[in-house]
Design a protein around this nucleic acid. Structure first.
Lengths: 332, 332
DNA sequence: CTGAAAGCGCTTACAG
DNA sequence: CTGAAAGCGCTTACAG
């Protein structure tokens, strides 16, 4: 560490501009309130000293942080990157900084990331994962808003912005039935949300009078690389499936590649349906039928909730159902 | 915002445990130094009150932050996600929190994210992008370590951990020449690093006695969806290329899909080479020849640099060349 | 529109 | 091993 002269403080700027620290602080946080001649001197002083406010001190004194934590399982192979990218963009634009935490599938890691976020007194924690009782108790003693996204728990800790995965599974079943498919093969990741979709699918499929589907289980996150094994599973069956229900568009893409590599045509010989409506879904050949979740809408709702919370108003609803849309393309 | 009793402070815990605040602070930061009987009472008091330390106050008082900022262009279609995921994981494990910033390709946004990071007095800023003079001057007046990754500028602001993109381009040229390719088509993104690789490729290719390659320019980040247009570019040419040099494995994947869709065999009719050695490179059919950059190694070097800096030692070298490896697979 | 002063919740020599 | 006290760099009523 180079031993630098210590960083200039508000007082240094105040001295330089021949005003009090309070006035500099006002200039920084609410410029309208200081006289223009004063402002000119302060601007010059800031320029001269190269002053960068110490947000730690500011946040401590004002008891707010303008900082938000985002907790996701992974960065690689994530279904959420598009939504997260939008949220981070909007937060930054609205003057919030974002702290990121990768939880994996570990509850302990989630707990400790929540604790770290609370320790920094973030205004909000946005989480895509399930919350433990410990998280619930830590959060509810704090001023931090807990926002669960991409799902709708029965009783959210703070606010939830998402959709029903059971309904999504159900709608996929209806759609495939309407297209005349007979033997779906379902690929499910070992995650609560994927299990919900599976349940919705299985229930509806059988309610429609079909035999239970075959299935493969894969580890989290659902990805391209799983396709090889899943396809091998399928080839080994005596009653071959006619469509594969995937937990992500990347897995769907992988299955298309495998199927084509084996000389099958998609969708003629085998249908494939993805999930999440990643941009590649519309770019793959054949294009991939998928379920779209409006990440931009979720991001906006999240921002609205945070803004409410930061301004001390309370968010109108504790649950926002943003729904989903099944997008029919070529692969089914 | 629920109007809660305000969060318990160190003083509340101290009162409860019948010790001074200083002792609780020591217990938290250096438990070995407090007597076991005292520790027992403090633990009980923390438990009882649900105390979560205020890191803002702690960081301000101790003049350190245990926080690191990571600046990347995008989350979606990023070449860096694997490396970033590792870095974030290691940082969290070593007790650092990470603040994330998405710069896009905007210099202004980069500048303001650097300012925000400095404002929070982060210990280090890790950046994959180019740094402006403003960044240089802000950073050099601060105690924050600036770490540039994935490239090796002539004169890094702080430390640089990366490799030579010119050399990578050069080696790709040599490799393709050695495989007997005659007419490469180069796809370059409008980014400094991609330009460097392009330059390395072009220079070497011509030094090897060939005519200059044809090329397509794409916007950042290089992605799967670019393939359609690039492939159309190729089909339009009268002297058809025999290999396509891509800026990412996702683009390479897209080109394979396009080529196969048009009835071409890869690599027999058209070779394709990617960049970054994404996991899909080894999973695609055909598997994709690519250039591997050791993200784990970069993550480790970054952690080492941060650890040095936090402990006040200075990092042995200002530039660490982690190199790269060309991995020959089926697509070329 | 501006200043003096108290306070935010910690850490850390210093003294014992 | 522990406590009293000063200090970290801000913000914000309060008074003028």
């Amino acid at each position: 560490m180079p031993n630098l002269p210590k960083a200039p403080t508000l007082n240094d700027v105040a001295r330089e501009a021949k005003v009090s620290a309070a006035t500099v602080s006002r200039f920084l946080n609410n410029p309208a309130v200081v006289a223009e001649e004063t402002a000119v001197r302060i601007r010059a002083a800031i320029e001269l000293t190269g002053y960068i406010p110490n947000a730690l001190a500011g946040d401590l004194a004002s008891n707010k942080s303008r900082m938000v934590a985002v907790l996701i399982p992974h960065l690689e192979h994530s279904l959420f990157n598009d939504m997260i990218e939008r949220m981070v963009g909007e937060m930054t634009a609205s003057g919030n900084n974002v702290m990121i935490g990768l939880t994996g599938t570990s509850r302990d890691r989630t707990d400790s990331l929540v604790r770290a976020a609370l320790s920094r007194r973030v205004d909000a924690i946005i989480s895509t994962g399930p919350a433990s009782d410990l998280v619930d108790s830590m959060v509810s003693r704090s001023r931090t808003l807990f926002i669960q996204v991409w799902e709708l728990p029965a009783d959210p800790i703070g606010v939830a912005i998402g959709f029903s995965h059971v309904d999504a599974g159900r709608d996929i079943a209806r759609f495939l039935a309407s297209r005349g498919y007979q033997r779906p093969h379902v690929v499910t990741a070992d995650s609560p949300r994927a299990q919900n979709r599976r349940e919705g699918f299985f229930t509806e499929w059988q309610a429609l009078g079909h035999a239970p589907p075959s299935e493969s289980i894969v580890d989290m996150p659902t990805r391209f690389g799983h396709a090889r094994r899943v396809f091998a599973d399928i080839r080994r069956m005596d009653k071959r499936p006619d469509v594969v229900v995937c937990g992500s568009d990347h897995l769907a893409q992988g299955l298309i590649v495998e199927a084509q590599g084996a000389g099958l045509r998609v969708p003629d010989d085998l249908g494939v349906i993805g999930f999440g409506n990643n941009t590649i879904a519309g770019e793959m050949r054949p294009t991939i039928t998928s379920v779209d979740v409006d990440g931009a809408r979720i991001a906006r709702e999240v921002m609205a909730a945070i803004a409410c919370h930061q301004e001390g108003r309370k968010f109108p609803s504790r649950k926002v159902d943003v729904g989903f849309r099944l997008i029919a393309r070529e692969s089914v």
